[in-house]
Amino acid sequence: MADPLLKVSGLNAWYGESHILHGVDFEVGKGELVTLLGRNGAGKTTTLKAIMGIVGKRTGQIRFEGQELAGSTSDIIARAGIAYCPEERGIFSSLNVEENLMLPPVVKPGGVTVEEIYTLFPNLLERRRSQGTKLSGGEQQMLAIGRILRTGASMLLLDEPTEGLAPVIVQRIGEVIRQLKTRGFTVLLVEQNFRFAATIADRHYIVEDGRVVDMVVAADVERSIDKLHDYLGV
């Protein structure tokens, strides 16, 4: 890859005394859809949080569009054009759907408009005046993804967007992620659901014990399936 959009090297992260990431290295090219796979506790979510700067302490390099972000606070990182959708979704319960959508600041031009978000997720349009707490899990996930699209961020970090959702909604989210890719978004996806990830990703990184131990491109998934099952313990 000549010039990756995001290049993470030697990333270490700590929660208090516990050392979670021990030198994570990977890169994501512009317009790529890359997943981080691995067992529970391997450090996938922590990698996303470390990129966003919301872990206790981190060292290493995070280069995004040629800009070094490892020393920046999360609000600066968000404004550089990286948007994060956490596993717990983080919907603000005192705001309604539309207010949640409008809350994130526009950091760059070229974001998805609210109308387009409603086209992607028609459920949200119906529930635009509902409080954040009154949504179903699937609707919350749609809102959590939808609201980071408006900001103009070019890189999306999605943490287990399909967790705990009905198959039909998982399918819908998969379609949306594919559409986002065709629109030029770069996506870094953390997933437990390998079957879901395999259908949409260009490449997979395997995370184990706080390190990236392997990389599989989509074309090789069939051939490497035994190795992947070994890594993921499924």
């Binding site: 966003m52 700067g53 919301i54 606070t73 999360s74 609000d75 990182i77 968000a78 404004r79 948007a83 994060y84 956490p86 983080g90 603000f92 319960s93 005192s94 705001l95 207010e99 409008m102 809350l103 994130p104 600041p105 950091v107 980071i148 900001t151």
Partner: peptide, 20 residues
């Protein structure tokens, strides 16, 4: 609304790009 968001979940508001 940003204030309410910060009150509710400061970390989330910050990682959306607000200087709390």
């Amino acid at each position: 609304q940003v204030l309410k968001a910060i009150r509710e979940n400061e970390q989330r508001a910050v990682s959306l790009g607000y200087n709390a």
